[in-house]
Simulated scan of single mutants.
Amino acid sequence: MTGLRYALIAMTVLIVVSTVTAIANGGLNLITPFLMPILALSWQGQFNIDFACYLVLSGIWMAWRGGFSGGSIALGILAPLLGILFLAPYLIYLVGRSNGDPRQLLLGVHA
């Protein structure tokens, strides 16, 4: 689990630096650059759709993992909206909370 923690920390740092740089260079306009390639039916658009599906799937998993409680549904909504910026720190928290038990980490209330 130590390797996973380091990878998640690296992802968090990378995305924070990338996000701050993107905002500094292009402002907060996220929707147009995300949707325009999709509407153009380009490879970038295909990637954006694929990526959005992964984000939604991560949100569904987070809500399911918590038994679709109010809190887990809220986390499930945050996950697709904030992506790895939210998911990586949350997974670091879960790794610690599960004491390194992969079953508990992945299954939550279903373990």
Rank of each mutant, 00 (worst) to 15 (best):
V20L: 15
F34W: 08
P89R: 09
I92N: 06
N29I: 12
V56D: 06
V109K: 06
L35R: 12
A63H: 05
L91N: 05
W43V: 13
F86Q: 02
Y54S: 11
S98Q: 14
M62I: 05
G67Y: 03
Q46I: 10
G26S: 09
V20R: 09
M1C: 02
G3P: 02
M11Q: 07
A79E: 00
W43P: 09
P80R: 06
A79L: 03
I31E: 15
T21Q: 09
G59A: 05
C53W: 12
T21V: 13
L28T: 15
G59Q: 03
P37K: 08
P33Y: 11
Y90P: 07
P37N: 11
P33C: 07
A52T: 08
I84C: 10
I38T: 13
N25L: 15
W61T: 04
A63W: 08
I92G: 05
L81S: 03
S18G: 15
P80S: 00
N29K: 13
I9E: 00
G3W: 04
N99F: 12
F86V: 02
S98H: 13
D101A: 14
G59M: 06
G59I: 04
Y93A: 08
L85M: 04
M11G: 04
I73E: 01
I9Q: 03
L94M: 13
A7L: 05
M62C: 05
G67C: 02
W64N: 02
V16H: 14
S42P: 06
I60M: 06
P33T: 09
M36S: 14
A24T: 13
S58T: 10
G66W: 04
L39D: 11
Y54E: 10
W61P: 03
Y54G: 09
